[in-house]
Simulated scan of single mutants.
Amino acid sequence: MSKMVQIPRASDASMSDAVPSSPTGKTFWQRFRRDRVLLLFVLPGAAVLLCFTYLPLLGNVIAFKDYQPYVGILESPWVGLQNFRILVSSDPAFRNAVANTLIITLLQLIFTFPAPIALALLMNSLVSERFKRIVQSILYLPHFLSWVVVVALFQHVLGFSGPLEQVMTAIGAGQPHIIGNPDFFKPLLILQDIWKNCGWGTILFLAALAGIDANLYEAAAVDGASRWRQLWHVTLPGIVPVVVLILVLRIGNLLSVGFEQIVLQQDAVGLQVSEVLDTYVYNNGIVGGEWGVSAAVGLVKGAIAVLLVLGANKIAHLFGETGLYQKEDK
């Protein structure tokens, strides 16, 4: 009696190839039905993101038009790349905005970015948990203040009628000229940024520090490692992935240095030292009516930000770090 050989049907093979499956063996629709409740919770946030983040990107078309608000986007004439001429021209205002943006960005990377890391390490060294929570609450508070309040506080403290002026006058050191002084404007921006956001920035680093295995510290102590050696060989390597992730995200915002903070103090110091790309777009677009030019500058700035994020993430992969996403294995 001959054995029957079962030949797979072509329809079965085509159907198995046509329906992609995940590594767990479930098809897309099976996973969709399984996670339908979670997807339902995500839907409102996704709708808000779509309506207020992605759909407005279509308005970047005015970068290629001579846009007039009373005419509308559709009726405004096309001008091609004419609005982008400012990027390659010798306009002193634009070059000044680029220079100020790069200087403030460099100062932020040197002083503002490491400040939350140092503060998180200092707070993590506190022995009393109750005292640590009190300190955290105090340091988080400035983050919830608006820039209007922060700038007003600094102007009151460092201004001509503030406590600093009274102390300096009492000791015969003369009246300090900080608020409104162009020479102190950029350092003052960094000081304000650190005071407002440093405490809030420690949240992720404190979470990373809490995730370090305590057995590593015990093993280092048994080997005779001092507190400094434990910090260098256990603590810092434990938070490197989080530091790299935050740094990659920060690099993507290199050309955005704080619009509201700067525009509130621009009149006191002048455009020469305070004009950055964000305020340039505002002053020329909304105030000056150059909508197309401002949209072109904003569009190029966004494209550069994407390239910076991708480049920084690629460099993170070269150094063996995950970055924003895990590198695919070939």
Rank of each mutant, 00 (worst) to 15 (best):
K3M: 12
K3D: 10
Q6R: 09
R9V: 06
R9G: 15
A13Q: 12
S14N: 13
P20K: 07
S21I: 14
S21N: 14
P23L: 05
G25P: 04
F28W: 15
R31F: 06
R33C: 08
R34V: 11
R34K: 14
R36V: 08
L39P: 12
L39H: 13
P44S: 09
G45W: 03
G45T: 06
C51Y: 12
L57V: 03
P69Q: 01
L74A: 12
E75M: 05
V88M: 09
S89E: 09
S89C: 01
S90P: 00
P92L: 01
V98S: 06
L102M: 06
I104N: 02
L107R: 03
A115I: 08
P116A: 12
I117C: 15
A118M: 13
N124T: 04
S128A: 11
F131M: 15
L139P: 02
L141G: 05
H143R: 14
S146G: 15
W147H: 11
W147Y: 14
V148R: 01
V149D: 13
V150M: 09
L153G: 08
L153P: 06
H156F: 10
F160L: 07
P176Y: 05
H177Q: 12
N181M: 02
D183S: 06
K186A: 01
I190G: 04
I194V: 08
K196V: 08
W200Y: 15
G201K: 08
G211M: 07
L216H: 11
Y217P: 05
A220C: 10
W228P: 08
R229G: 06
R229S: 13
Q230V: 12
T235L: 11
P237V: 02
G238E: 01
V240S: 05
V244M: 03
L255R: 03
S256D: 13
I262Y: 00
V263D: 01
L264R: 00
Q266W: 02
A268V: 07
G270A: 04
V273M: 03
S274I: 00
S274W: 03
V276D: 02
T279F: 00
Y282Q: 10
G285E: 07
G288E: 04
E290G: 13
W291H: 12
W291K: 07
V293K: 15
V293N: 07
A296E: 07
A303Y: 13
A303L: 14
I304T: 07
V306R: 14
L310R: 14
L310G: 07
L310M: 10
H317R: 01
F319S: 14
F319C: 15
G323W: 00
E328K: 08
E328D: 05
K330P: 11
